[in-house]
């Protein structure tokens, strides 16, 4: 076993945590808004990844343009899904929502397998992101540094949008108390559609950003779903701060755990999750 390199484990865990945050944050806010159990969120991320692969591989598109395209495309598609399929089940019980979204996951996995096959996909990163980067005290893959930067920028942008804009205030109000927000004239349904689109778009972008870190194959939608859900449940529904913290903690622990005790695998994460949820069933920063 290689010697234990603390800085590289911390940086690696941080990069992974940022990725978890970008994918999960939309899920947290939409679940907090509507209480809708959306198991198809990971599938949106997967579709985003395949859009990036296709644009870059077939059309030779720029990495950043491909990410942007994935964001826009999946956000648009998710609005159609939301209006046609999700909206009729807002008042329904969890079981219906679980069934609907698991069904969607299966359909998306099948579609992806049909068009792209089961082999894992990779992309060619721009050269300045591909190699290692010398940080003085350690040398580290440039892409992970980039990932940490993107995650940090994202949290700042989301925080500003959430805390400093009217729409952000409306979303916070609706998460806190939907009925009260509605009676104050806030159109919660439209707010939800917008948030849903934004969240799915971010997930799609995360899917593209994550190809280099966690890979991409049709089982992605199910394999990583558990992680995204854990981040959301541990962080607390509807809380950006909670999601961020949970994503970092879980990213770090998972990365460090797999690096230091590879045989124990993901054991830590599930143990931590169970402990946190038993201690605070509503999550670290959840309301109620």
């Amino acid at each position: 076993m290689e010697s234990i390199d603390i800085p590289s484990i911390v940086l690696g865990g941080l990069a992974y945590g940022m990725l978890l945050f970008i994918v999960s944050v939309g899920l947290s806010v939409t679940m907090g808004l509507m209480g809708f159990v959306n198991l198809a969120h990971g599938a949106f991320a997967m579709i985003g990844g395949y859009v990036v692969v296709t644009l870059m591989g077939g059309l030779g598109a720029n990495f950043f343009l491909a990410l942007l395209a994935a964001f826009v495309l999946v956000a648009l598609v998710s609005v159609v899904f939301e209006r046609l399929l999700y909206a009729p089940l807002y008042r329904a019980d969890e079981l219906s929502q679980v069934l609907l979204t698991i069904g969607l996951v299966f359909m998306m996995i099948a579609t992806v397998t049909f068009f792209w096959g089961t082999e894992p996909k990779t992309i060619r990163l721009p050269s300045y992101l591909a190699g290692p980067m010398d940080l003085g005290f350690t040398s580290f893959p440039a892409y992970r540094i980039f990932m940490i930067g993107v995650g940090a920028a994202m949290i700042v942008a989301l925080w500003l949008g959430f805390e400093r804009t009217t729409i952000g205030a409306q979303i916070r109000a609706a998460v806190d108390n939907r009925r009260m927000a509605q009676s104050l004239g806030i159109n919660v349904d439209r707010l939800f559609t917008m948030t849903f689109a934004l969240g799915s778009g971010l997930a799609a972008m995360g899917g593209g950003l994550g190809i280099e870190i966690i890979g991409l194959n049709p089982q992605y939608a199910l394999n990583y779903l558990v992680f995204f859900l854990i981040v959301v449940a541990v962080g607390g529904l509807g809380s950006i701060r909670g999601t961020f913290l949970a994503a970092l903690v879980i990213g770090m622990f998972d990365f460090a755990g797999k690096r230091l005790y590879p045989e124990a695998g993901a054991f830590f994460i599930y143990a931590i999750t169970i402990a946190v949820l038993l201690w605070r069933p509503q999550g670290l920063f959840g309301r109620r």
């Binding site: 089940l89 069904g103 299966f106 996995i109 099948a110």
Partner: peptide, 12 residues
């Protein structure tokens, strides 16, 4: 798999 998913969606 697609059919299975479709059936679940329709049932829900």
């Amino acid at each position: 798999q697609f059919g299975l998913g479709l059936v679940l969606v329709l049932i829900a």
